[in-house]
Design a protein around this nucleic acid. Structure first.
Length: 286
DNA sequence: ACCTACCTGGCC
DNA sequence: GGCCAGGTAGGT
């Protein structure tokens, strides 16, 4: 579900509600099988609870599709720990009033000093929670290395161009690879390729300089536009307040297979690429 | 650099 | 009942 714009929206929503809040208590589902899938580090639910209880949430940030919450320093002056959350396909992270009914598939609840509750629900259980220092999480192999942030000012068109030139796979496969670029998923990969006029199946290293530049701008454009629209709620994405985004109304190709291209009217084609449904216009995209 | 698996739920 | 879904990991 959530790609960069959706995660960014959740992070911006949660920041003010969570920053400075101490965690009073930690509730975890008693379903051990579910916990085993979701708690990636520490694996032991008791250890996870104990390490989180009483800690203060300092700041909420995003890295790729990950939500990163910095925690206050532990007593013994050890390195700073983070609570890292990936929403998978169907994860939701929201602040609730304690009296509000707990929705099905709620796996984690943190009660805060403010009296509110941070709840994590995830029907498909593809999301995950990690808690530890950066070194610890990297050592445990639970934090994959991520490529650059597509919206970072440091990533220039030339940088991007160089990265693309070095890949031999389909450009869309590269865009979906989080170690190549962090945060783009199936929706925005297709949308960016459309805006850039590039077929998703083109080999990355065969794109022209012009096309690589167009793609660089297109990626930033579709991501920024979606952030402004508070994300794409195609199926069940909601923001940190439980509200749907509106960027699904801006999507030109994703989910529009067979419908006329908005630019030329040709019916959009659907194919399978990198294991994902891929929609493009065979006339506008070369 | 591919597949397939991992889950639930919605739609045909 | 089967297929599909915005995600990754883990095996080949």
């Amino acid at each position: 579900v959530p790609e960069l714009p959706e995660v960014e929206t959740v992070v911006r929503d949660l920041g003010p509600q969570l920053a400075g809040q101490r965690i009073r208590s930690v509730w975890l589902t008693r379903d051990r099988a579910v916990l085993g899938r979701i708690l990636r580090y520490p694996k032991d639910p008791a250890a996870f609870r104990q390490r989180l209880r009483g800690r203060r949430l300092e700041q909420v940030e995003r890295r790729g599709k990950y939500i990163v919450m910095r925690l206050d320093r532990p007593p013994a002056d050890r390195a700073e720990e983070r609570l890292v959350i990936h929403l998978g396909m169907t994860g939701h992270l929201r602040v609730w009033k304690p009296e509000e009914p707990v929705v099905k598939h709620t796996h984690v609840r943190l009660s805060l000093e403010s009296g509110l509750e941070l709840r994590y629900d995830d029907p498909r259980q593809f999301g995950r929670l990690l808690l530890g220092t950066e070194a610890e999480l990297i050592l445990a192999g639970v934090l994959p290395r991520l490529g650059p942030e597509p919206l970072a000012a440091e990533l220039t068109a030339d940088d991007f161009s160089r990265l693309v030139r070095g890949r031999r796979r389909a450009i869309k496969a590269a865009l979906l690879d989080q170690s190549f670029l962090a945060g783009v998923g199936n929706i925005y990969a297709d949308e960016a390729c459309f805006v850039a006029g590039v077929r998703p199946g083109r080999r990355a290293d065969r794109l022209t300089l012009r096309e690589r530049r167009a793609l660089y701008s297109a990626i930033r454009e579709v991501l920024e536009k979606s952030i402004l629209a508070r994300g794409s709620s195609v199926i069940n994405y909601v923001d940190g307040f439980g509200e749907r985004g509106s960027n699904q109304e801006n999507l030109a190709v994703y989910g529009r297979a067979g419908e006329p291209c908005l630019r030329c009217g040709t019916p959009l084609r659907s194919t399978r690429l990198a294991g994902r449904t891929t929609v493009y216009c065979r006339r506008c995209q070369r």
